[in-house]
């Protein structure tokens, strides 16, 4: 094997890892399911990664999942498989994991990796957006907490400083009675990249909408969410009046602007995205 060697680090502790990031600009490898494909070379040749590499998926500190003050903290290196088996992980995440990844990917792919890869089609992102996920970024200086929609800035663009590491994902308390949906449209049930994905949350109290959140994936550079439109639903009578429903769908029709690519067409993506929204807001089966 002819391979140009880059420095690589595999520290025993999180503290050592973070102090190395303070000294050197590194490529961070958690499960590797995205990094190894992104930098793939031809058969028999190691992926071409220009920067020194830091392995983090063995760090136990990054695999803790726990509740604190009602908020769920998920370690950035929890694999999908570990999340599936953890009693604290919300069922809607487990449903999504079963639908997006085959067992072999579940055993390597991590939640933190899915976020930091910042793909427009990132499978866990729609749910993380509607859960108002917050991210804990640790550096030698401090822990910084960032909202997921501020962290992800565009395809493969994130607001991580060179000396920071995503260590935890926080899901602020979600009201139990919330109705949740996650749907992914792709060519295959496992291991396919989304054409469209959708996550929704709806909470109805005493016949009126108390909370509504929607996020669409693979229809723009980042997840599409509109808190302005969501607010229009608050206090509306449920089941929704036709005018209200039509207005919400029309709002999203004006902000969802997908593209044509090898996986799908803009027209298909937009049509399906709006139908998923309408289905979620009207389906009795879900409730």
């Amino acid at each position: 094997m002819v391979t140009k060697t880059v420095a690589s680090y595999h520290f025993d502790t999180l503290a050592e890892t973070i102090s190395k990031l303070n000294e050197e600009d590194c490529t961070i490898i958690a499960g590797g399911t995205d990094v190894m494909v992104l930098h793939k070379s031809r058969r028999g040749v190691a992926p071409k990664i220009a920067k020194p590499v830091v392995f983090i998926d063995h760090l136990r500190e990054l695999k803790q999942t726990y509740l604190e003050d009602g908020d769920l903290h998920i370690g950035a290196c929890c694999t999908y498989g570990e999340m599936l088996e953890h009693s604290l992980i919300p069922n809607i995440f487990k449903k999504a994991i079963r639908e997006v990844a085959a067992p072999a990917i579940r055993n390597r792919g991590t939640l933190g990796g899915n976020i930091c890869n910042a793909s427009p089609a990132g499978d866990m992102l729609p749910l993380l957006y509607i859960f108002n996920a917050k991210l804990v970024l640790r550096s030698v200086n401090e822990d910084r907490i960032v909202e997921i929609h501020d962290f992800i800035q565009g395809p493969r663009r994130i607001a991580r400083q060179q000396n920071e590491l995503l260590v935890e994902i926080i899901l602020p308390e979600v009201v139990n009675e919330a109705r949740l949906i996650f749907e992914k449209i792709a060519n295959r049930r496992a291991d396919a990249i989304s054409k469209v994905s959708f996550a929704g949350l709806l909470q109805v109290q005493a016949g009126k909408v108390a909370d509504a959140r929607f996020a669409f994936g693979a229809v723009g550079p980042t997840m599409v969410r509109s808190q302005e439109t969501e607010k229009k639903l608050l206090s509306q009578v449920y089941p929704l009046k036709v005018e209200v429903l039509d207005e919400v769908v029309a709002d999203f029709a004006s902000i969802i602007n997908p593209i044509d690519d090898q996986r799908s067409t803009a027209a298909y993506r937009k049509t399906v995205a709006l139908k998923l929204l309408r289905y979620f807001l009207t389906s009795k089966e879900l409730f």
Partner: peptide, 25 residues
């Protein structure tokens, strides 16, 4: 690319795609 499973191996008894595993891990 981790989509076909022909390279599957067991790592600590868990099925994984060996094409996606950097040996440093």
């Amino acid at each position: 690319e981790g989509e076909c499973g022909a390279c599957s191996v067991l790592v600590d008894n868990l099925v994984q795609n060996s094409c996606l595993i950097p040996i440093g891990a």
